[in-house]
């Protein structure tokens, strides 16, 4: 593959945009937030982020999801951590979300609307949440 130019990137986007418009979607209402503090990076959050983006694309959810990063959520012992906020589901922080669990997250939580029982760590540590 040769180096893509910005013009080619624009063209690719336009093509994708057409594909996306043919699907019936209600807008970006799912937020996936990856903890990217020192602890997260050390535990492989960068790879997790990459795998989540790939899994979202694979399951054709790209136009519905916003993927963000945040700093340490205070759960350094179960990094990488991923928070998912979406309609009809409770906001959940998942821990131990290594890149190999990324697809399971997308399929179970985002598509099937069920929780990943063994990864739930509820909410940020008490000293991180503003009281």
């Amino acid at each position: 593959m040769a180096k893509m130019t910005l013009d080619q990137l624009r063209a690719l986007r336009a093509q994708k945009q057409e594909e996306l418009e043919t699907r019936n979607v209600e807008g970006k209402d799912i937020q996936v937030i990856v903890g990217m503090g020192t602890c997260g990076i050390a535990a492989g959050a960068k790879q997790t982020f990459d795998a989540i983006v790939a899994a979202i694309e694979k399951h054709k959810l790209a136009n519905k999801v916003v993927v963000r990063q945040t700093g340490c959520m205070g759960l350094c012992y179960v990094e990488p951590t991923v928070e998912v906020i979406m309609p009809d589901m409770p906001p959940v922080i998942y821990g131990k979300m290594t890149s190999d669990v990324a697809e399971e997250l997308v399929v179970k939580h985002l598509v099937e609307h069920s929780l990943l029982d063994n990864h739930i760590f509820d909410k940020p540590a008490i000293d991180i949440v503003k009281r």
Partner: peptide, 8 residues
């Protein structure tokens, strides 16, 4: 931050 932009 949109997943579609990120994959592009």
């Amino acid at each position: 931050t949109s997943a579609s932009s990120l994959s592009l």
